[in-house]
């Protein structure tokens, strides 16, 4: 197995404390369609520890964003949370009423949205958009104090103070994304969900935004869920990686082990498909097709594309089990070992 990005990983990075800030248990999110429910997220369980960044990767449509939106209870209709618990500080977000939910949003969990281009209200100044998040949760603030607070947030993400008075259309994509980061940390949340924060940006700006995220995390000790396809960015930023396939979590491991020795056949294919500068190789991931998400086959979710598929995979669902320290995988190949 090639280790394309392992050299970029800094093994000395502190991997957070053992304090759990987010516990997701048996989360199921289905989208209603005329021909049955699409199981976008099916029985996903994981936890985020204090001060760590967990990457959530997988192909388009595998349920990454839906998982993130479910944590904020922002799944848009026709989607709905069918089952599961989302615990933040022992509070189950899935059970909160609307008022309690509003109070926990942004104070405990904030969002760096996918596509910052359109995530800012075009007719409000940046200061008002950051300010309304602060004032909604902390009440009316003295003008000067609020201004200084917003300015310091902007400088935290490396934006000049003139951004304070600007409108979104006066900013570049990277600046908008950093405004979103500043907004996300405005209330010192326990957890920040960054949904593909760099996907709409060019590579240079991607790096700047990535560094900003890392800097924010190191300074504030905030926990993060980083969603994306960019394995290079993941290698640079995250402590642990969760790999999703067709609504299921198939592997969860610290980033170094995962890149060095991916266990799940899907993860192996995923890492193998990272283009290498040194050699040309065919893209392997196109082999096989994903099953119909409305009607998953019995047994393992990856059986239709898996090169190691056995009869057991076609009947028994492999649970996500810890097969080595800080290594969880949902695959029959590893349970006996």
């Amino acid at each position: 197995m090639s280790v394309n990005f392992a050299h970029e990983i800094d093994e000395r990075r502190p991997a957070g404390t053992d304090q759990v800030v987010l516990q997701v248990e048996g989360l199921k999110v289905y989208y209603a369609t005329p021909t049955g429910d699409v199981r976008a997220v099916d029985d996903v369980t994981f936890q985020i520890r204090e001060g760590e960044i967990v990457g959530l990767v997988g192909e388009s449509g595998c349920g990454k964003t839906t998982t993130a939106m479910a944590i904020l209870r922002l799944v848009q209709s026709p989607g709905r949370i069918v089952d599961g618990r989302i615990l933040v500080d022992d509070v189950d977000i899935a059970r909160l009423n609307e008022r309690e939910l509003r109070q926990i949003r942004w104070t405990k969990i904030s969002l760096i949205p996918q596509g910052a281009m359109n995530s800012l209200n075009p007719v409000m100044r940046i200061k008002d958009q950051i300010g309304d998040a602060i004032e909604t949760h902390e009440g009316r603030q003295p003008r000067q104090a609020l201004k200084e607070r917003i300015l310091s947030l902007l400088s935290t993400v490396g934006l000049p103070s003139r951004v304070y008075k600007m409108y979104p259309h006066e900013l570049s994509g990277g600046m908008k994304q950093r405004v979103c980061i500043a907004m996300a940390i405005a209330l010192n949340p326990t957890l920040v969900i960054a949904d593909e924060p760099t996907s709409a940006l060019d590579v240079v700006v991607q790096r700047v935004v990535g560094e900003t995220l890392l800097d924010v995390k190191n300074r504030l000790g905030v926990s993060m869920i980083l969603i994306g396809h960019d394995m290079g960015l993941m290698a640079q930023l995250v402590d642990r990686i969760a790999v999703m396939y067709a609504g299921h979590l198939v592997e969860l491991a610290d980033v170094y082990s995962l890149f060095r020795e991916p266990l799940h056949p899907y993860t192996q294919l995923l890492i193998d498909s990272i283009p290498s500068i040194k050699e040309r190789k065919p893209l392997k991931l196109t082999e096989g097709i994903t099953h119909d998400l409305r009607n998953p086959p019995p047994g393992c979710i990856f059986q239709l594309r898996c090169p190691h598929v056995t009869d057991k995979c076609r009947t028994v669902v492999p649970p996500l089990l810890e097969v080595a320290p800080s290594r969880e995988v949902a695959c029959h190949l590893y349970y006996d070992a």
Binding site: L72, L74, Q76, L101, R102, Q103, I104, R105, W106, T107, S110, L111, P113, Q114, G115, M117, N118, S119, L120, N121, P122, V123, M124, D132, A133, T136, H137, C180, M183
Partner: peptide, 26 residues
């Protein structure tokens, strides 16, 4: 369906504010 509407909701703003300042205003 606009992203800023979803972000406004994620920010935990009051529905009246989302309606007026984000929805109607645009």
């Amino acid at each position: 369906g606009e992203d800023y509407m979803i972000l406004a909701e994620a920010k935990g703003l009051r529905p009246s504010r989302i309606f007026l300042r984000y929805g109607v205003r645009n």
